[in-house]
């Protein structure tokens, strides 16, 4: 079964690869952009699910970690000449001006910087109870934003960066997405994953079982922060423009929405909801833009998209709190069995 599963996983990866190859050649830029956003959103959702869904730490700081990842990565991939042009408020520090790294290293650095801040922020804050933790981490994200505005020699202040090289193509994004998926699946399936879930279910009992709760919370939080940083880094390169305003609470809200919809503590749920909600978010942009039917113009309704989404979130919390997957996971055995049943029925 183990060997069979490995083969099936490799097959699935190959199918994804073929699809991306096809998409690259046949889909228009807009659709490719949506595919890219799907990959980034899955990374972000998995990272929040690790923190909140699996370890039970209600964190609203995702936008902060994403901002750190995006800024670090952007500084490293913008070339010095570009940076000289960009920093018009105040000249950049020399180390900011001269920092340079290949894309992979830059994304990694973005993730590591976010993880570093994860440890820094988590060490004092993770002692807090769930709702206070949420507010404190939200405070952290806002502090990151204020710092981004007020440190113009590093971040170019409120203007942010423009023309960030678009290295984050389908291949990079999906490579990171698959890596994140692989990482989180392995982690959650290991005994450390059991420990995370134990802490989520009953912290005192976990302590009595010899678990260093604080250490494991910090571990889960900083791993989540790492992938949030990676997601932010990819997003920066993908949209080519970042500024402090972009990393506001809406960004965290979207990720939370995906995680809750998919199911807290379900990796499958985060992936599926990542795909569906990203598409819906883009598709609903239509209602905010004016619509032309012949000569007749239907004015767009700004704000409508988030009205729909916030309403959807409220409905899910009210009527299907466990999300679409609950805590269930996809596995090959399950798929094969159900396929086998169908084949059997056809045969008879």
């Amino acid at each position: 079964m183990q060997a069979q599963r490995t083969i099936l996983n490799l097959l699935a990866a190959a199918v994804l690869g073929l699809f991306l190859w096809w998409a690259e050649g046949h889909l228009d830029g807009y659709k490719i952009q949506i595919l890219n956003l799907i990959a980034v959103n899955i990374i972000l959702a998995l990272s929040l699910n690790l923190i909140y869904g699996f370890t039970g730490m209600f964190s609203l700081g995702h936008a902060g970690f994403m901002a750190i990842g995006a800024y670090v990565c952007s500084v490293l991939i913008l070339d010095p000449a570009q940076k000289e042009m960009l920093f018009i408020l105040e000249p950049a520090y020399t180390w900011v001006q001269q920092a340079q790294a290949p894309f992979f290293v830059a994304v990694m650095a973005g993730g590591l910087a976010a993880a570093f801040f994860g440890v820094l922020v988590g060490a004092p804050l993770l002692r807090l109870g769930d709702d206070y933790l949420g507010m404190a981490t939200l405070g952290f994200a806002e502090i990151v934003r204020v710092l981004a505005i007020n440190l113009p020699r590093v971040t170019n202040g409120a203007l942010g960066f423009k023309g960030i090289p678009g290295h984050a193509n389908l291949w990079w994004n999906y490579a990171w997405c698959v890596f994140t998926l692989f990482f989180v699946v392995r982690l959650v399936a290991s005994n450390s994953g059991n420990v995370f879930k134990a802490i989520r279910d009953d912290e005192s009992a976990a302590k009595a079982m010899g678990i260093d709760v604080f250490r494991h919370k910090l571990l889960s939080f900083s791993l989540g922060a790492f992938f949030a940083g990676v997601g932010g880094a990819l997003l920066g390169s993908l949209v080519a423009t970042i500024d402090p305003k972009m990393f506001n609470f809406v960004l965290t809200f979207n990720v939370l929405m995906i995680v809750v919809t998919g199911g807290l503590g379900s990796i499958t749920g985060s992936v599926v909801a990542g795909v569906v909600i990203t598409i819906l978010l883009e598709w609903l942009r239509v209602v905010e833009n004016p619509l032309f039917i012949g000569d007749w113009e239907l004015p767009g309704i700004p704000g409508m998209r988030m009205v729909v989404f916030s309403l959807a979130l409220i409905c899910i919390i009210l009527f299907r709190r466990e999300g679409f997957m609950g805590k269930r996971e996809f596995n090959w055995g399950w798929l094969l069995r159900s396929l086998g049943n169908k084949a059997g029925r056809h045969g008879s």
Binding site: N194, A205, M209, I211
Partner: peptide, 13 residues
């Protein structure tokens, strides 16, 4: 107990 985990997972913890 860790109510959402399986019986085996509880002991594994």
């Amino acid at each position: 107990l860790f109510g959402n985990g399986t019986v085996l997972e509880n002991v594994m913890v």
